[in-house]
Design a protein around this nucleic acid. Structure first.
Lengths: 225, 225, 225, 225
DNA sequence: GATGAATGAGTATTCATTCAT
DNA sequence: GATGAATGAATACTCATTCAT
């Protein structure tokens, strides 16, 4: 699913690589995401993507069938790594600490400059690509949610969290992180959120979620501390 | 809330109409929002808006300067009534009940078919209109957040809520509602959320928020019940 | 040729004329010439003609078939009176005085504000109307030229002017007047001409022409003086 | 005078061409002048210019920003060479001969097919471009007039011409040439002029002007003869 | 007669895509 | 592989003209 660019069967020795031909597709994808993020799919121009990647318009079409495929690949290229990152950030262990780490890792992930605008792209443009939309729903959105639910589920079972439907708790968790990422990346649209640092916002989200998940009289113990 | 076009109280006689110029702008705005919501600003065609409103291309330009002004007006026309609705839905009274009503009213509001896709438009297209973006930030987003904060503030002062920064609580409240509205209106992108009814989701949001806001040992009393 | 507007058969008594309906066409023609003169046929808008005439767009079409007919009529309305004016300005008499009066009358005529820009219209737009072009050539341009030629012819025969082809002299006479009118009405395009008054220019034209037409040793006698 | 596109002296090899990008702009300018001359700025269609130049609509926009810039460049491209031509045609020498050569060169210049209709464009369309109008006034119209005045001035000083304001004589000279060029290129509008050959008209203009400029009893000496 | 709301044909301009070099 | 000149489909917008009131 990820080898979108035609790949030569035997890269062989790679003598001195005249122009790193294998890096071209990735450079174009990176440029594409930037340009698409700034202007949206319809208003972004292939020529700008090319210029931004330091190649000519024609070269883009050497690696990608069409502007739309380029868009799909640029998005896919980024989200493919999200889940993997989240999983490696939340190794088994104390559920409260795991949840803290999940929140922290996801929040930091979404605060990377391009990701917030990518979320905007997903919302605004993906509905035009039904097949890809399903892929995103099943392979990304679902899996992230399931990971969060799994963490909560273990916490509920072990008594670290109060009795709550883990899928509900997962939704609240993911929802607050994502929504704060959207807000923070649109300071003019949502000025109320803009005067907090990323770290403060992350802490606020964490504390709020924990205050809803920890058992009523339970020790606020746990976490990395 | 729905009589946006000034309507004469008693249509009375009005024998045979063929022209209803006074309703034209509103009809066009409604059509525009629909078409923009479906395709986004760039891909939507003015001609489709016209057809959808039952008029011809030229007629749209009789009432609106350009496609972009039509877009702005279509958005403004909708959001202008949100705050007013929220305020009238949350008359002074018991803070817990007020918060419940706020959540309920806002959630129902955002679940109206066009509003979720309008949110998508705001996110995806408004950044192209800096002046309008600021208007939205200050007149809509800010005010909604402030209303929620005010409700929490009173609850904290009266002891109905635990000690929490009201602006933080407001963000969590609004964020969860908005995010759920986005998810629910994109069932393919976010399939996990799709199998709950609106009522269930509303309840889940309410209960989750209250569990984070009510004082630890406090009676879960209050609310409409 | 001039009754372009449908005229009611029996104007009868004209009790108190509610709105001078018979003057409407002329008002529209005047407005049309103004607007056409300013913007040219293609860029002038019927609505502007209507506004300028103080009526509504539809009213223009009550009196004129189309924008092009309106244009034709507006031009025709003006040029129809030129020849008549020139003839009455040059009654038989001393050829030198007649020529002076011809130059003076034509120059003053062309210096009226609208006429210079009308000339521009004739040059720029009339070629689109072959039939009308022929009419103008035969009924206006030719006749003016012939009148000038006739005056010179008499002068040559009577010995007031040197032996010169009268049609050549007529061309030089008309040409200088027309060209100066064009220049004077476009001061930015032809700045060199702009710092002379109309009277000075008229005198310069007259003296130059006479110096070419009077017999070499001939007394500069004649003229109004 | 005619090699407007830089032409490599020896085309030499140049095996099989399909692209001549360096000649494209000039080809488009030539086509543009033709089409604009025929229809005027407003009625000329960019597509017709393209077709006439043997390229597609889009190609025109590869070289020119807009229809209006194309118009400006097409005009500028032509007038830029007028003054230079006139100056090289009138080297210092006997004033009468110089004036004859000035008349001859300018008359021939204006009789080239496109130039007369270009004059029409200048009159009819240039007022829409104030900046360009000033450029034309100062760099073209003024300079041509000044060149003619200079020739007369020398002739007056040397006694070849009678005492006359050189700027007046220059205006009469240029005016007659230009006006005859306009007439001749609109034979239907001005039929009286049409039955003379270019050479006859040129001679008539020359003789008429000289008869007004030479000293009364002066020998008609001078000239190329 | 007069109005002006409605229409839709006509055009400038953009930009994804192709392909000769 | 890489280029960028060329293409032409697609679309916003204008404005002459019509016609119900």
């Amino acid at each position: 699913m990820s080898d979108s660019a035609p790949m030569k069967p035997f890269p062989a020795v790679e003598p001195r690589w005249r122009r790193r031909p294998n890096e071209r597709p990735q450079e174009i994808l990176d440029a594409a995401l930037q340009v698409f993020a700034e202007h949206g799919l319809a208003r972004a121009r292939v020529e700008d993507v090319a210029t931004c990647a330091g190649v000519s318009k024609g070269t883009v079409y050497l690696y990608f069938e069409s502007k739309e495929e380029l868009f799909r690949e640029a998005i896919r290229d980024r989200i493919a790594r999200t889940l993997e990152m989240l999983e490696s950030a939340t190794p088994p262990g104390d559920p409260v600490a795991r949840l803290r780490r999940f929140i922290d890792a996801y929040w930091k992930h979404l605060r990377r400059p391009l990701f917030a605008s990518m979320y905007r792209l997903i919302l605004a443009e993906l509905p035009q690509f039904p097949g890809f939309t399903r892929f995103y729903g099943e392979e990304v959105s679902d899996k992230v949610m399931e990971l969060a639910a799994q963490i909560v589920r273990e916490g509920v079972e072990s008594g670290h969290f109060r009795a709550i439907d883990p899928t509900v708790a997962a939704r609240m968790t993911v929802g607050l992180i994502v929504q704060h990422a959207i807000w923070t990346s649109h300071p003019t649209l949502f000025p109320r959120v803009g005067n907090r640092s990323d770290a403060e916002l992350g802490d606020e989200i964490t504390e709020f979620l924990l205050s809803a998940l920890l058992p009523p009289g339970g020790a606020r113990a746990g976490g990395d501390a």
